[in-house]
Design a protein around this nucleic acid. Structure first.
Lengths: 215, 215, 215, 215
DNA sequence: CATGAATGAGACTTCATTCAT
DNA sequence: AATGAATGAAGTCTCATTCAT
């Protein structure tokens, strides 16, 4: 029985090893070629496996991306979710969220972009994309309401403002993290921390204003 | 000679008529199907022309998009660039830019998105995309420098801040204008003017802050 | 205008020529390899066309067979339908039907068999097959009712008897016409007319009996 | 030695158990999906065995079907062949044969159909099919000769007539037994015994006629 | 013997592009 | 210039078969 268990264990290890190899290869190919240019055969080759092996684990490219996206979603949640003490100052809290998002993007950016690309062409990914965004918008809108109770950013709809906030963070990360974003443009060496710092300040600024503040 | 000129005129008119028909059809198909799903044959059919006619005017889909993008760039410039009196208050000025961008996006959104999609897959479009962004970043960074001279948003790099600003505007527009952005999410009837209003307030807020402002 | 018409005529001629070439090639390949072994590429090659040309005319193998089957159905109708004077002696009439069916099978056998093969695997062809059979059963059952009114084959259901009759004719034709049926078995030179003659006699015999006839 | 024998016995029992499970599963899958759609993996799964186990007992799908077909042939022989008292009236005798065939078909129809399907595509199965038919034709031709000696069905070749007879029986059984034959068509509840009864009457009628019988 | 992951040949299908009319 | 049939490269996916455990 010990042998049988060992056998099973070894087998399932082999199975998950191959799957992991394919996923890892997929992330690399996705990062390199983008979702639309990523061919199954390239992914298999990158993984050092036969094409058929891909289909042992995923029905097609969509299902693969679905699996990767799930991992991304979990990563974001793990980074953001847990310590988001609502008891904190809403601005400090937002700073934490931005940093967490940036970190997740740094690691899983290729997948996030791939989902985004797929969403442009495929309705089920468009849905997933909206879900992910909705999650972010909900989180941010809570902070905005808190800020409003303290007298800030009066007269704007919290969800709309939250949508803007998310766009700001997401797309900044996209343009900085993903292939040759604006950094090349800026032609200067600006390190991660400065980017996040500035982004955070502006996120906070975008909701920490009062109508009556003089110019 | 008069006849010849008339002939040429008629010819070029006819030529540009077919070309215009194809471009118009392309815009519709792009809006409907996205760049990657837009087939040459679909565009030709939508234009009521034969496939061969497409190749009479464009070498391939890229060239077509290049032409459309050029029109988009001009439209944005016409709306924003020229008369943007730098003499104005930088915040009022930014408000104008945001509104202009929104208007351009409303009209040419499909093309903008198509260029964006193409940029994810094709290096030459990625370059074009960066150019377009650079244009926007340069414009915004001027306003930020002005604001900084008045004591606002000290301690941030104007180009980085400008990059964030552009991301905020572009991606908000993207998510609102393009197919079922966040609006569906919000599940509420929010009209254009409120969206732009909020976006503008936040854009301004994002740079109109002082470190010493108490909570 | 004459030129335009000529052009159109020439073009449409070209179009239908290619389609006809593919259909003819398909019939040959179907006869040679059977439905399941017939590859699109083989058909295209046999027609001297590129694979892509096949798809210009048929969405897939099913649609091709559908078209061929329609021609078969029409051929059978043309051979049988028209002169089936119900005023004739029912037995003479049946003889004519058998001969007509045999002739149709001789010419379109490969298609008939292909439909039959496809019907074993594909529900929509199974339906078509049942339709074709139903047509035959209806025709035969009329003759059987006539025969019954004259006192023959009492006590059997006309539709069931008709089903048997059709099976007899169809499957005899199948086994004789299609690749090396029973003829090889018989190892003798038996010509068409004797086969049809015997088949006809037995078809007639199968319904021209009376219960009271002594052994 | 006793132990060794016991071991062998147990082994061979186990062996045949797995083999039997696969065969039984194959019959079910064949009935459900047809020969061409029946995948090895489906059969293995249906048997609750691993794919590899299939190859322990059969070299491929053909060999499996060969084995099943052999069982079918034996079943038909057992039902018909052996004790078919030639001393009986040839018509009574034919009735018995028809009933026997119908019974065999009812039980092993799926295999018979599978062999038939395979014969359409595969020369070695075509051979087997002809052998099986030849067997039936030989049996029936004997009865026909007997009938001819008594003055019936003069002027027809006994083998050809026998071929027709076999086609009638086989294909009627096929159309009635196999998925949604003509029964659906008839749209009526007709039970087995009536079908066999009618089939038998017509088989007999098909050879029990005299040229001189008046209309 | 049993297992089932790995393999890759082979079939299908799409679509950008060409070219003869 | 306009047309659209013809083309075939390239990608997707299936499934019989092998082989290491």
């Amino acid at each position: 029985m010990a042998i049988e268990q060992a056998g099973r264990f070894r087998e399932s290890t082999k199975r998950s090893k191959t799957e992991a190899a394919i996923k890892a290869a997929a992330r690399r190919v996705l990062a390199r070629d983008g979702y639309h240019n990523a061919k199954i055969s390239d992914i298999a080759e990158e993984a050092g496996k036969a094409i058929g092996s891909f289909y042992q684990y995923f029905r097609n490219k969509e299902e693969l991306l679905l699996a990767l996206a799930e991992e991304f979603r979990i990563a974001v949640q793990d980074n953001i979710g847990a310590p988001s003490g609502i008891e904190l100052d809403p601005f400090d809290n937002l700073r934490g969220v931005v940093r967490a998002f940036w970190r997740a993007y740094r690691e899983h950016g290729a997948v996030a972009v791939a989902v985004f690309q797929a969403a442009m062409v495929n309705e089920s990914f468009a849905d997933m994309w909206r879900q992910i965004r909705a999650q972010g918008i909900r989180i941010a809108s809570l902070r905005i309401r808190l800020a409003q109770r303290r007298g800030y950013c009066q007269g704007v709809d919290p969800e709309v403002a939250s949508s803007v906030l998310c766009s700001m963070v997401e797309f900044s990360c996209y343009n900085w993290v993903v292939a040759n974003g604006d950094l090349e443009l800026l032609n200067r060496n600006i390190d991660d921390s400065e980017l996040v710092e500035t982004l955070t300040k502006m996120v906070v600024g975008a909701i920490r204003w009062r109508e009556d503040a003089g110019h």
